[in-house]
């Protein structure tokens, strides 16, 4: 095989913990699927399964509406402690 896999095998963190439901108020659950700029990470990078990716997407969008997570982080709207929520 000429093309070797460059990255380590990804697995779904939520499947591993046997998560059945993701609550939007539980930011600890959401952090695995958020980038540093609070974007939703794609499945190809996190390795989430489709079921959990859909769950987490819904939860993140709810958390954004309720101002638990910012919609965007840019130069104008700098979060004072960007890693306060995600650690």
């Amino acid at each position: 095989m000429a093309e070797r896999r460059k990255f380590k095998k990804r697995y779904c963190r939520y499947c591993e913990q046997k998560v059945e439901f993701i609550d939007y108020k539980d930011l600890g659950m959401l952090k695995y699927s958020l980038s540093e700029r609070y974007k939703i990470m794609p499945r190809r990078l996190t390795g989430n399964c489709k079921k959990h990716q859909e769950m987490v997407t819904g939860a993140i969008k709810k958390a954004r509406q309720t101002a638990l997570i910012p919609y965007i982080v840019d130069r104008k709207r700098v979060v004072e402690n960007p890693f306060e929520l995600i650690k």
Binding site: A67, L68, I69, R77
Partner: peptide
């Protein structure tokens, strides 16, 4: 959930009681 910092400004407020 108590007084929390909002992730973004709402009605010129930076904090809110959840």
């Amino acid at each position: 959930m108590g007084m929390r910092k909002l992730a973004y400004e709402i009605d010129k407020q930076n904090r809110g009681y959840y």
